[in-house]
């Protein structure tokens, strides 16, 4: 039985949901633990050579306890694989940048923007965990990106996204370059969003939108267990490859 350690932000919820709803049976040679640190709580993590620990009485401890059946510490030597969900694409910043570029208000070199993406990736809550695991274990690591914005956003706010569409290809390429530059290690595998979940190269099909999050917060990014199922399929294809 291979032990999998899933670590991520709230976007890990879709995968965990799918796993607990029955996907675990499909991948019976694997046992999975989920350590989800919502929002910015993963920044609270404390690192020692063999562990990643949530401080006592912290928000992260609360989140870990809830997602990992009471556990607040990740013992690195217990796992064969580490899987990260929650590498954010900075869509809000990119929307504003696209607007500046479309109006010809300001120009930025591609090097500068790529460095901006690298800084963004370095500042992600999961990045210190990835770096720590790379340093202290020999286990393979899979990194899955946060799902793209729901297509519903484009339908509801076409004007807001019109400038973005002009530059989406350009920014996607820079993001990809930055990811490969920062996470340049043979033990790391970056996986893309499953094709079948995409409405266009830049938007996720509306069917996958987490309706609770959307109804309460107008959130276009959190997804359903069906989305989690598609991502798990892609991750396990990689693991069994």
């Amino acid at each position: 039985m291979k032990q999998l350690c899933f670590i991520g932000t709230s976007h890990l919820a879709a995968l965990a949901h799918a796993w607990f709803q029955g996907e675990s049976a499909r991948y019976s040679k694997f046992q999975a633990s989920f350590f989800a640190g919502g929002g910015s709580s993963l920044y609270e993590a404390e690192f020692s050579p063999n562990t990643i620990k949530a401080p006592i009485a912290s928000k992260l401890a609360e989140n870990f306890q809830r997602s990992a059946q009471g556990e607040t510490t990740i013992n690195l030597d217990q796992y064969d694989y580490f899987i990260f969900q929650g590498l954010d694409y900075p869509i809000i910043e990119i929307l504003r940048l696209s607007l500046l570029l479309a109006k010809h208000e300001q120009f930025f070199s591609s090097d500068c923007l790529k460095n901006g993406f690298i800084h963004h990736l370095e500042s992600q809550p999961i990045t210190p965990c990835i770096q720590h695991i790379l340093h202290y274990t020999t286990a393979p690591i899979i990194i899955s990106t946060t799902p793209k914005t729901s297509y519903l956003a484009l339908q509801n706010q076409p004007l807001e996204y019109s400038s973005y569409l002009l530059y989406a290809d350009f920014f996607e390429l820079l993001f990809l370059t930055a990811k490969h530059e920062l996470f340049n290690d043979p033990r790391l595998t970056l996986i893309k969003q499953p094709e079948e979940t995409l409405a266009t190269p830049f938007f996720t099909k509306t069917d996958y939108l987490n309706k609770t999050c959307f109804a309460k917060h107008h959130d276009y990014w959190h997804k359903t267990p069906n989305y989690g199922q598609a991502v798990l399929k892609k991750i396990f294809a990689q693991l069994t490859d």
């Binding site: 932000t9 709230s10 976007h11 890990l12 919820a13 879709a14 965990a16 949901h17 607990f20 989920f34 989800a36 919502g38 929002g39 910015s40 709580s41 989140n63 809830r66 997602s67 809000i92 987490n210 609770t212 999050c213 309460k216 917060h217 959130d219 959190h222 267990p225």
Partner: peptide, 18 residues
């Protein structure tokens, strides 16, 4: 401000899954 908003949204997603 936006961090607070993000935290709230994320909290909902987690509560739902776990």
């Amino acid at each position: 401000g936006s961090q607070k908003m993000t935290d709230e949204v994320c909290e909902d997603a987690l509560l739902d899954a776990f």
